[in-house]
Design a protein around this nucleic acid. Sequence first.
DNA 1: CCGGCATTTGACAACGTTGTCTAGGGGCTA
DNA 2: TAGCCCCTAGACAACGTTGTCAAATGCCGG
Lengths: 346, 346
Amino acid sequence: MTETARGTSHRYGTRPTMKDVAARAGVGLKTVSRVVNGEPGVTPDTERRVQEAITALGFRRNDSARVLRKGRTASIGLVLEDLADPFYGPLSRAVEEVARSHGALLINGSSAEDPAREQELVLALCARRVDGLVVIPAGDDHRYLAPELAAGVATVFVDRPAGRIDADVVLSDNFGGARAAVAHLIAHGHRRIGFIGDQPRIHTAKERLRGYRTAMAEAGLPVEDSWVLLGSTAPDRVRAAATAMLAAPEPVTALFAGNNRVTVTAVRVLRGHARPVALVGFDDFELADLVHPAITVVAQDSAQLGRTAAGLLFRRLDGVDDPPQRLEIPTRLIPRGSGEIRPAGG
Amino acid sequence: MTETARGTSHRYGTRPTMKDVAARAGVGLKTVSRVVNGEPGVTPDTERRVQEAITALGFRRNDSARVLRKGRTASIGLVLEDLADPFYGPLSRAVEEVARSHGALLINGSSAEDPAREQELVLALCARRVDGLVVIPAGDDHRYLAPELAAGVATVFVDRPAGRIDADVVLSDNFGGARAAVAHLIAHGHRRIGFIGDQPRIHTAKERLRGYRTAMAEAGLPVEDSWVLLGSTAPDRVRAAATAMLAAPEPVTALFAGNNRVTVTAVRVLRGHARPVALVGFDDFELADLVHPAITVVAQDSAQLGRTAAGLLFRRLDGVDDPPQRLEIPTRLIPRGSGEIRPAGG
DNA sequence: CCGGCATTTGACAACGTTGTCTAGGGGCTA
DNA sequence: TAGCCCCTAGACAACGTTGTCAAATGCCGG
């Protein structure tokens, strides 16, 4: 394509390197490196010549080569379920903010709740040699990460614990939050309370279910099988289940929704329902206070989860070598009205 | 630290390399490379030995070195304003999905609407040698990107056009959407319509303002200065402005909100207001239909924006070399009630 | 005026991978 | 059985950067 000597010029699509800059400035390679990295020991005059060459050629340091040489990438990976989920936006943003404050970039990927895809993503990030990982697990077996951990990839799990390996984890108080939510409904006179939650394979779903059952048991209330729906929270399925619970001969008088998607679907179902039905949802969401009645929720601070996890990650990267920690972020019951509805005829 | 011969063993914190694997399997370096990359020309028996060594050592290919050698990183960068904004979640997810289907990872960063930070991020991504960039511009001068574009970094701008350079861009029909929204209000009898929007420095805000003015002009209606608020859309500021517009001697009877944050604030203001006031918001948001009255909005399909932009980006990466394109994604007016309110006493 | 020291500069190897090229061995054909 | 070719395998250079070390220069004190 061109017979121009390498090192003096550069072809289209080929970026100029330090060698090119050095040749143009009439200095050595290492001097360019020094200027680019702001290292001392360069005459103002030399520095100016190099800077001019850099500008003229449009040189930009190749971080791949730098990484290869230095061993650190100054980037961390974030694997979560779905960026489009409003719960993860603030979390991701918080992680990014912490990364930024440490001069690191954030690479992220969505697992779509698929364990195989989670593993694929995590290993791809390890191949890029990210310095650390923040993972919201989709799967429940993370032994595949053991070699990476041993090799020094700092890893913090968020929202759900790692499976079958010992690692740092930052969780919400799912159990306590759920228990408080259901206790709240019971305190307002409800005895027949439905629960609609995610697949019990998922830690948060399991914990929230446990909170529900515990609150019921503590009040001496039975839980009928037909009051509990676990599994996919696809709107159609949730709608059908909620409708059935409300249409039963002895209908539930209140619903506890296991996550924000379920809550929204429940609101739509209840809207078309004759009798008032109480509702408490896990996860806060924007506008929960504008719906009528305003929705009582158990709020978790997803940004705080992200901030805490990223903070822990960078402590690890700074060399802190304590045994793996398990941090829990408290949840908060926000009464707004929908949970304070009393059972009809109660 | 250790006198173990390099190449046979590896120290803690040092990952095994192909050389280590080769030594352990008793084969040559290139053979390991062949196995790792699934290249042909390796005996099943040799391959097995290599695989065993890989597993035993926990080897994972170092993509930094690979990138350095091959020139392509199989990653693209996404720079947006704020991941926590619900508008960007689906967009980001869509871009990621397209990237994934092309075997690329997504690196993203938030500019926080700060041009300097946008530039910093973009250049950092270029230094990582991402293959391409999807940028939602915060600034209005992107000449700093010219050397990168010349070097072959494919770049697509989304939501707002690039400033002072010629590049691909994917936009929503902001003008048409705003015009339709305001025309909708006018059709329902409104003559005094307020507009609250972002800083006119931002392209979308400018276009929406233009749509508002055009619709008013087309109906032969004047626009008073006090009906228009531009600039920061901080809730307090928006609340004060909306309240003032409604409390004026000749108050506006309808509001057009320039983005979803403004809409939400407006809903809160109107909720506490005596007279019914019509409202149309730009951007759809979850639960807009559950608020009372349900909020009429101009919906833009942010996922479609992301998909289109990423699609265009990968076409570029595949070598398509047309002149820069400008694609426009249509918006859709979704009447839900709040825009159909007729002016009091009109 | 000379030795020694500090400062600036550059040559060179190394990081871990992949592309190219060549060597060696086994099977097939004439 | 000799010659050829194909298939497997490895040696080596190169990607662009940074760390190490040594050379060259200039300045100081004696």
